[in-house]
Design a protein around this nucleic acid. Structure first.
Length: 309
DNA sequence: AAACCCGGCAACCGCACTCCA
DNA sequence: TTGGAGTGCGGTTGCCGGGTT
């Protein structure tokens, strides 16, 4: 089915806003408040698309916006939040009062990216660019989120979930990371006493991933939680992409009953596919999900967020 | 002085999601 | 349950101004 246009485009202005348009929009919203963006332009006497009005208000005209340069603290906070949330600009903006998602997105692309690259850090993965294998893994994990990362070699790594005996619900699972450049599979064992140890399928190629830090526990879909996986935080981007398919439990959260998916824990409203049992309040999603990182209330104390470069 | 280049940023576009009848 | 309307989000585009040649 087709999608109706957000407005009658034939009679709308585009491009830069004039002072008069700004004044009209401000005056209207001061009187009537935000909302009903589709009908706002007509009511306010603006020849603009409703979406355009909303964007102009949110990104530029809102009185609580903080104009001016980003502080060093804000820089670091953005970096830390991005390492946790990826390109979830609206979520990041929610932790920076007075800043908009668009502003942060632009600032990231123009300043912080370069800053991280100068530090030798891949801005997409927040990992040092040096480690060969890690690079290959993270290249793929971020490729789906952004295909414009020229500083990373575009090799292909396939990540798949597997079970040694798929039909048995309590079997040992493992995460297979296939590095096509090295032509080898790396198997991350799940639910084994030494699950933190990363081993290659080729015995002589073991100990290839010494710096994987293992702080996220994820569970494959529809498996019981005994089969939790532990993966590197370098995979977090990938895991976020796969949120709808794989309930991802943050270590420590899933103990004592209901476990929640990563998205819900971050306050990201989950989709229909969300299979987590976020029953803390009986539902899942941003309005009731577990408040991982304190993202729902107050300002996140980013100083407590440790980067694992 | 003019042409060109490049970075920054406001605005646009299309898709995804939620709500509701 | 379904589909349309409204809204939000992230990626991309294009304009503008400053710097360089």
């Amino acid at each position: 089915m087709g999608r109706s246009p957000c407005c009658e485009k034939a009679h709308t202005n585009k491009g830069a806003w004039t002072k008069e348009e700004d004044d009209r929009l401000i005056a209207y919203i001061r009187t009537h408040g935000e909302g009903c963006w589709r009908s706002l332009p007509k009511a306010a006497g603006l020849l603009r698309c409703g979406k355009s009005c909303r964007l102009r208000w949110i990104n530029y005209l809102r009185p609580d916006l903080k104009r001016g340069n980003f502080t060093e603290d804000e820089d670091e906070l953005i970096i830390k939040l991005h390492s946790l949330l990826g390109n979830k600009w609206s979520l990041i903006a929610g932790r920076l009062p007075g800043r908009t998602d668009n502003e942060i997105k632009n600032y990231w692309n123009t300043h912080i990216r370069r800053k991280l690259i100068n530090r030798g850090i891949d801005p997409a993965t927040h990992r040092q660019i040096t480690d060969h294998l890690t690079n290959n893994i993270t290249t793929t994990t971020t490729a789906s989120a952004s295909n414009s990362s020229p500083d990373v070699t575009p090799t292909t790594t396939t990540i798949s979930f597997a079970s040694t005996t798929p039909s048995a619900p309590s079997t040992t699972h493992h995460l297979i990371v296939k590095n096509e450049e090295l032509d080898q599979d790396i198997k991350i064992h799940i639910n084994s006493p030494d699950y933190r140890k990363i081993t290659n399928t080729s015995p002589e190629k073991q100990e290839r991933c010494p710096d994987l830090n293992l702080e996220l526990r994820i569970g494959p879909p529809h498996h019981n939680h005994q089969n939790d996986m532990v993966v590197s935080s370098s995979l977090s981007s990938y895991v976020q992409q796969q949120h709808h398919h794989h309930a991802l439990m943050i270590g420590g959260i899933n103990s004592g009953g209901g476990s929640i998916c990563f998205g819900c824990s971050l306050g990201v409203k989950s989709g229909k596919e969300c299979s987590c049992t976020s029953s803390l309040n009986g539902t899942s999603g941003s309005r009731s999900g577990y408040d991982f990182l304190g993202l729902k209330n107050g300002v996140l104390d980013y100083r407590s967020l440790e980067m694992k470069y």
